[in-house]
Amino acid sequence: DRIFMTRTEALEFLLKAHQTAVDKIGHPSHKQTPADHAAIEALDRLLLDVRARRVDQFQINASAAQIIVTD
C-alpha cells in the first residue's frame, strides 16, 4: 500500500509516531530495551531527513504502508 502526503503531513505523522514511541518507553509498566531507543533514534533521523528534503518516501516498519511525500 502507498499513502501520498504533503511534506507537512508527513512531518506531523512522524512527530506523532515519535511521541508514541517516547510515551511507550516512558510508561512505568514497559521495560526499556535497546531496540526501543534505536527506534526513536531512527525516527529522529527520518524526521530530519524528511524536513531537509533528503527523503521523499519512507516506511516506518515492514508491515506499514509506504509513505510518499509530495510537494
Rank of each mutant, 00 (worst) to 15 (best):
39 A>G: 07
53 R>Y: 15
25 I>W: 03
45 R>Q: 11
61 N>R: 05
48 L>D: 12
29 S>F: 06
18 H>S: 04
64 A>N: 13
52 A>S: 12
58 F>C: 01
47 L>T: 05
20 T>I: 13
50 V>H: 01
53 R>V: 08
66 Q>C: 08
39 A>P: 03
66 Q>P: 08
53 R>E: 14
20 T>K: 13
3 I>S: 03
15 L>P: 00
62 A>Y: 06
3 I>R: 07
27 H>P: 06
52 A>H: 14
28 P>S: 08
52 A>R: 10
30 H>L: 04
51 R>F: 12
64 A>D: 12
9 E>P: 00
24 K>H: 11
53 R>C: 09
61 N>E: 13
28 P>W: 02
47 L>V: 12
28 P>F: 04
7 R>A: 04
33 T>V: 06
59 Q>F: 11
11 L>S: 02
42 A>L: 14
29 S>D: 08
47 L>A: 05
54 R>V: 13
50 V>K: 00
65 A>F: 13
39 A>N: 12
62 A>C: 08
24 K>R: 14
29 S>M: 06
30 H>V: 04
63 S>M: 12
10 A>K: 00
29 S>P: 02
40 I>L: 12
8 T>E: 07
21 A>E: 05
45 R>Y: 03
49 D>A: 04
20 T>C: 05
28 P>Y: 03
17 A>Y: 06
66 Q>K: 12
56 D>L: 10
68 I>N: 04
6 T>G: 05
65 A>I: 11
5 M>Y: 02
31 K>I: 15
18 H>V: 11
26 G>V: 10
25 I>K: 04
17 A>H: 08
4 F>A: 06
19 Q>F: 06
7 R>I: 07
60 I>G: 01
7 R>C: 03
62 A>V: 07
39 A>L: 15
53 R>G: 14
64 A>H: 11
40 I>E: 02
26 G>H: 15
24 K>N: 06
22 V>T: 10
17 A>V: 11
28 P>L: 05
55 V>C: 05
36 D>Y: 04
20 T>A: 15
34 P>N: 07
46 L>E: 00
6 T>I: 03
5 M>L: 06
60 I>T: 03
43 L>K: 00
23 D>Q: 10
32 Q>L: 15
1 D>M: 04
69 V>S: 01
33 T>D: 12
53 R>M: 14
67 I>V: 10
49 D>E: 12
11 L>G: 01
70 T>W: 12
48 L>R: 06
8 T>L: 12
45 R>A: 09
70 T>G: 06
30 H>C: 05
25 I>C: 03
56 D>V: 12
9 E>H: 06
27 H>A: 13
33 T>M: 03
52 A>W: 11
19 Q>S: 06
56 D>R: 12
46 L>G: 00
3 I>N: 03
70 T>N: 08
53 R>F: 13
39 A>Y: 15
54 R>N: 09
37 H>G: 06
53 R>D: 11
54 R>P: 01
44 D>I: 14
62 A>G: 15
38 A>G: 05
9 E>W: 02
1 D>E: 08
26 G>M: 15
37 H>F: 15
40 I>T: 02
15 L>C: 08
36 D>M: 09
19 Q>E: 08
5 M>K: 02
51 R>D: 10
19 Q>L: 07
46 L>S: 00
16 K>D: 07
44 D>E: 14
36 D>R: 02
63 S>E: 12
20 T>P: 01
54 R>T: 09
64 A>F: 12
65 A>H: 11
19 Q>A: 12
40 I>H: 03
5 M>W: 02
13 F>G: 01
63 S>I: 12
53 R>N: 14
6 T>E: 02
6 T>V: 03
8 T>N: 13
53 R>I: 05
14 L>D: 00
12 E>W: 06
41 E>L: 09
5 M>C: 02
10 A>N: 00
20 T>Y: 11
67 I>H: 02
44 D>C: 06
50 V>E: 00
16 K>P: 00
11 L>E: 04
49 D>F: 03
32 Q>G: 15
31 K>A: 14
54 R>C: 05
35 A>C: 04
68 I>T: 09
26 G>P: 03
55 V>E: 02
19 Q>W: 07
32 Q>C: 10
31 K>V: 15
28 P>C: 05
43 L>V: 03
66 Q>Y: 09
20 T>V: 13
58 F>V: 01
27 H>Y: 05
62 A>N: 13
68 I>G: 01
62 A>L: 08
57 Q>T: 11
66 Q>T: 05
7 R>Q: 08
13 F>D: 01
14 L>T: 00
9 E>N: 04
26 G>A: 04
12 E>M: 10
61 N>W: 05
7 R>F: 09
41 E>I: 12
58 F>H: 00
43 L>A: 01
66 Q>R: 11
30 H>P: 02
17 A>G: 02
48 L>M: 14
57 Q>N: 09
60 I>Q: 02
57 Q>K: 15
34 P>M: 06
41 E>P: 02
32 Q>A: 15
43 L>G: 00
36 D>E: 07
35 A>P: 04
56 D>W: 13
48 L>A: 09
58 F>Y: 02
52 A>Y: 14
24 K>V: 07
15 L>G: 09
58 F>S: 00
43 L>E: 00
9 E>R: 04
14 L>E: 00
71 D>Y: 07
32 Q>K: 10
54 R>K: 12
69 V>M: 07
24 K>Q: 08
32 Q>M: 11
16 K>I: 11
28 P>I: 07
26 G>D: 09
24 K>T: 08
42 A>C: 10
28 P>A: 11
3 I>P: 01
42 A>H: 11
40 I>F: 04
59 Q>D: 03
23 D>W: 03
49 D>S: 06
49 D>L: 13
31 K>Y: 15
33 T>Q: 04
63 S>A: 11
35 A>G: 09
60 I>M: 10
42 A>Y: 15
37 H>V: 14
32 Q>F: 13
19 Q>P: 01
15 L>M: 12
45 R>W: 03
65 A>P: 07
16 K>H: 09
71 D>R: 05
59 Q>K: 10
51 R>C: 07
49 D>R: 03
14 L>W: 01
11 L>P: 00
27 H>Q: 12
16 K>R: 14
42 A>M: 13
59 Q>M: 11
29 S>C: 05
55 V>D: 01
8 T>H: 11
56 D>P: 02
32 Q>V: 15
60 I>E: 02
59 Q>L: 07
28 P>M: 05
3 I>D: 02
12 E>P: 00
33 T>A: 03
44 D>Q: 15
17 A>S: 04
56 D>Q: 11
55 V>A: 04
38 A>I: 11
54 R>W: 05
64 A>K: 09
51 R>P: 02
4 F>T: 07
41 E>M: 08
7 R>L: 13
53 R>L: 12
24 K>F: 10
28 P>E: 11
54 R>A: 05
8 T>S: 13
16 K>G: 06
8 T>M: 13
58 F>I: 03
38 A>D: 10
50 V>G: 00
30 H>M: 04
69 V>I: 15
27 H>F: 06
68 I>V: 12
35 A>W: 09
3 I>L: 09
51 R>Y: 13
15 L>S: 11
70 T>F: 06
48 L>P: 01
55 V>R: 05
8 T>G: 09
56 D>M: 11
27 H>G: 07
35 A>R: 06
23 D>G: 07
62 A>Q: 11
19 Q>M: 09
24 K>L: 12
52 A>G: 07
39 A>H: 12
65 A>L: 12
13 F>C: 04
38 A>Q: 11
48 L>G: 10
29 S>N: 10
42 A>S: 10
10 A>E: 00
56 D>F: 12
26 G>Q: 12
2 R>Y: 11
57 Q>D: 04
